[in-house]
């Protein structure tokens, strides 16, 4: 159950790419333990928004706070935020020159200065949780897409983040692999992880999310509980989008 403590807060956040206004006055609070799904048509700014949270993208105005730290040009602040926020990418982005195990232990060893053996123990534990520990010695290129994405989730978890961001984690997967990744994410949600997830998996949103944020044209159009948003959308734009994704 989400607590009252706000761990991510976006206030009037704006971002431009050149003259293109990518994010318009975004206001969003995420509480500890809350599961937020961000939905919307492509190009609506969903990914841009969550990438601003850990400073993979820079916002030009407004305030983003993560666990009380303002995300700004301050390198130290950004490093602090990134240690606390895990991210899973659409394209997995595992490091192809390192084994699965090395992918997982890299950040604990170098960022947290953890002894190698301890980092490996923790890594094996998370690999077991994503049911892939027998592949620890393999290279990412030898795994299937679904396996790679589970490794990527485990890699983020090894830093023991308090927040996980998912940027369309299943969009690059073959249909039969989507479930194995979603299962891991559901499990994570059940353990109380704070999650912000950009996804087109409405089934996942329905079962897991506390809050669904619908975005279009760089704006938050509507946000509500999944049952309200899907069952009784207030905005015409939301209805239009839902009818499009439900049609197939």
């Amino acid at each position: 159950m989400p607590t009252d403590e706000i761990v991510i807060s976006l206030k009037d956040v704006n971002k431009w790419y050149g003259t293109f206004h990518a994010l318009r006055d975004i206001n969003l609070d995420v509480r500890r333990g809350e599961r937020v799904v961000v939905a919307g048509p492509s190009g609506s700014g969903k990914s841009t928004m969550i990438r601003c949270v850990n400073r993979l993208e820079e916002h030009q105005s407004g305030i983003i706070l993560v666990n009380g730290t303002e995300v700004s040009n301050d390198v130290k602040a950004v490093e602090k935020v990134r240690r606390d926020v895990g991210m899973v990418f659409q394209q997995f982005n595992l490091f192809p020159h390192l084994t699965v195990l090395e992918n997982l232990t890299l950040a604990p060893i170098w960022v947290k200065h953890m002894p190698k053996a301890e980092a490996a123990d923790i890594a094996m534990k998370y690999l077991e949780r994503v049911k892939i520990h027998e592949q620890a010695k393999k290279y990412p290129g030898q795994l299937s897409g679904g396996q790679q994405q589970r490794v990527a989730i485990a890699r983020s978890l090894c830093m023991r983040p308090s927040i996980m961001l998912f940027d369309e984690p299943t969009s690059a997967l073959d249909p039969e692999m989507i479930k194995e990744v979603l299962d891991v994410m559901v499990e994570l949600a059940e353990e109380g992880m704070t999650m912000v997830c950009v996804t087109h998996e409405m089934g996942f949103a329905r079962t897991v999310a506390d809050k669904v944020v619908f975005m279009a044209d760089g704006q938050v159009v509507e946000m509500n509980t999944p049952s309200e948003l899907f069952g009784n959308p207030k905005e015409e734009r939301t209805r239009q989008f839902l009818s499009q994704i439900i049609r197939h």
Partner: peptide, 26 residues
Amino acid sequence: PRGQYEAADSIGLTYWQKMRLVILPQ
């Protein structure tokens, strides 16, 4: 690929760690 830089950033590596451990070896 840009994703390699982003993944290295997102797990909290500093610039020099990112270059030395992730980008330059590749």
